[in-house]
């Protein structure tokens, strides 16, 4: 029993190994989506025009930000239902302060403060007071969204400063829109943090088993709080983008059920609601899949309920894929 007591040879043949890797990789959902888009393009060539693809990509940027933020919370085994509420409230806060001080920096400061504040509050309640994330974020989303509606009497706040609009959406830097730069920066930083830092490793450990992580010297509470803070900030920045895009701040920039797109994208991309799983690359793929399917169905001139059902079907398929993935691990 000295050697070969288990940590031994790969159990499967090489082809089995390859298949398993394919199933586990993020490429599979993307391949599905590409095949689907290709099929639709036969009927409706407008799908594959550069203009359309650009539009899809741009429209998906806020969702991408929110989903990347949500990924951090899912990795530590939590869930953040407050995405839409925080996005709306952050834009409203910025709109209100910029009425007094019409300065983009002040507006951005307000956006970040709301995101960070709500996120840290969630973190404190979940990590410090051991409250269930589902309910905490549900309660704060009601309060935060309600507060934003209250403060604006459900009116849109138009007349945002030019600098704010340019920073959040339209502005041009080296021929690329500012919103693309912001999203790219968030994605790259998030990927590096999760994949290449001690901090990121510790987040996964917390999600896999918080008790083990604690014994092994991971400051569990602080990691959970940080994950919620990241999620709050990402949702707030998504709100900034949405407001800049429609040139007005409002409490209802997003309907609450955008959360289902966010969770759907994360799950399609390989994140697990049980924690400890998921990559930024996967989330990018998940968002792309959701955005492409929605766009193609709209172009095919189908009713909204087709889009709704297709999203449901996709999440179901992604979950089936997740089962295949975990089966490989837990035989």
């Amino acid at each position: 029993m000295t050697a070969g007591a288990g940590v031994g040879e790969p159990r499967n043949s090489r082809t089995g190994d390859l298949a398993r890797r394919l199933v586990r990789s993020e490429a599979l959902p993307l391949a599905f989506a590409a095949a689907w888009v290709g099929a639709v393009a036969v009927v409706e060539p407008a799908v594959l025009t550069r203009r359309n693809l650009e539009n899809v990509g741009l429209a998906a940027l806020p969702l991408l930000l929110a989903a990347v933020g949500q990924l951090f919370v899912l990795v530590v085994g939590g869930i953040d239902l407050s995405t839409a509420a925080v996005a709306g409230a952050a834009s409203v806060a910025a709109g209100l302060v910029m009425r007094e001080v019409p300065n983009a920096a002040v507006g951005v400061g307000a956006v970040l403060a709301v995101g960070l504040g709500v996120g840290l509050f969630h973190g404190l309640a979940v990590a410090g007071l051991r409250m269930p994330a589902f309910l905490v974020t549900l309660a704060t989303s009601s309060a935060v969204a309600g507060g934003a509606v209250w403060a604006t009497r459900s009116q849109k706040l138009a007349g945002l400063p030019e600098g704010f609009l340019s920073l959040g959406w339209q502005g041009d830097l080296f021929g690329v829109r500012s919103s693309v730069w912001v999203a790219a920066a968030v994605v790259v930083v998030a990927h590096l943090v999760l994949a290449r830092t001690v901090f990121g490793r510790q987040l996964y450990a917390v999600g896999l088993n918080a008790a083990t992580a604690r014994v092994s010297g991971v400051p569990v509470g602080r990691r959970i709080a940080a994950a919620f803070a990241v999620s709050g900030v990402c949702a707030a920045v998504a709100g900034l983008m949405l407001a800049a895009r429609q040139k007005a701040a409002a409490a209802d920039l997003w309907r609450a059920d955008v959360l289902l797109d966010v969770l759907g994208a994360a799950v399609i991309g390989g994140a697990s609601l049980r924690g400890g799983r998921g990559t930024v690359l996967g989330v990018v793929v998940g968002v792309a899949v959701i955005a492409l399917i929605g766009n193609t169905l709209t172009l095919l001139d189908l009713d909204s309920w087709h889009v709704t059902m297709a999203k449901g079907g996709l999440i179901f398929l992604a979950a089936g894929l997740d089962i295949l993935r975990t089966r490989g691990d837990r035989r």
Binding site: V267, M309, G312, G313, F316, A319
Partner: peptide, 13 residues
């Protein structure tokens, strides 16, 4: 996940 996806599918129906 099952009920999240059926949330969409059933509402679509």
């Amino acid at each position: 996940v099952v009920t999240l996806s059926s949330l969409f599918v059933i509402r679509g129906l």
